[in-house]
Computed example of a mutant assay.
Amino acid sequence: MDREQLLRELNYKAVKSSGPGGQHVNKTASKVELHFDVGESSGISEEEKTRILKKLETRLTKENILILQSDESRSQHKNKEYVSQRFFNILEDSLKKPKIRKKTRPSKASKMKRLKKKKINSEKKANRKDPLK
């Protein structure tokens, strides 16, 4: 993954932010949208592309474009930084290889402990019964 190449491929778009805020909100575009085309990227390898497409399939459009937004700050520059940081975090999380599960068996001591607990529990319940019946 080449971060510099990916930064060059990102498309930013400034949009008017929604919600309350008075006159300032109505005339400034402080919300930032990030568009990233996963299929056309040359900053990631083919293997990484397939992993990203699989992991992020619910977040991608039909054209395999990842769209992220940020309107946390009133500053367009800060929102651009926030959305870029979030983009790289999402990308790194999607590229992590899952750990392979190793099959293990319960130890003899843990089996005995479980059976002992079961025995104690059954005796406890047996003692609750009416002794005359």
Rank of each mutant, 00 (worst) to 15 (best):
S94D: 03
S84P: 05
K102W: 00
E72Q: 13
R105S: 11
K116H: 09
K80V: 04
K102R: 15
S70H: 05
S122R: 05
K80N: 03
T104F: 00
F87V: 02
I90Y: 00
R105L: 10
R105Q: 08
L115D: 13
R86M: 05
F87I: 03
I100R: 03
K80G: 03
K113Y: 02
K125D: 13
F87P: 00
F87W: 02
I65W: 01
L95I: 02
N127V: 03
K102N: 12
I100H: 09
F88R: 00
N79S: 09
P106N: 01
K80Q: 13
L66V: 09
M112W: 03
K116R: 14
M112I: 14
R74W: 06
N121A: 15
D93Q: 08
H77D: 11
K119W: 04
Q85F: 06
N121D: 12
P98R: 03
R101T: 15
K97G: 09
A126H: 03
E123R: 02
S73R: 06
N89E: 13
T104L: 02
K97F: 04
V83G: 05
I67T: 15
L115P: 01
N89P: 01
Y82W: 08
S107R: 03
A126T: 04
K113L: 10
L115Q: 14
D71F: 00
K108M: 08
S94Y: 02
K124M: 05
N79I: 02
I67S: 03
K78C: 04
I100A: 11
S122G: 00
S70G: 10
S122K: 07
L95Q: 09
K118Y: 10
K119Q: 11
R128E: 15
K124Y: 14
Q85S: 10
K96V: 10
K103Q: 15
K124F: 15
I120H: 08
F88E: 05
Q76T: 07
I65Y: 07
N127I: 02
K119P: 08
V83L: 05
K118D: 04
K125M: 12
S107I: 09
F88I: 08
K124A: 11
Q69K: 13
E92W: 02
R114S: 12
S70R: 04
L95D: 08
V83P: 04
K96I: 09
I67Y: 00
T104Q: 10
E92T: 13
P106E: 07
S110M: 12
R86A: 11
L68T: 09
E123S: 12
N79D: 07
L68S: 06
K108Q: 13
K116Q: 14
K96L: 06
Q69N: 14
S122I: 11
P106I: 08
S84A: 14
L66N: 06
K108P: 02
S122V: 12
S107G: 14
S107Y: 03
R105I: 05
K96T: 10
L68K: 06
K118C: 07
S107C: 10
S110T: 14
K78S: 11
Q69M: 08
R105N: 10
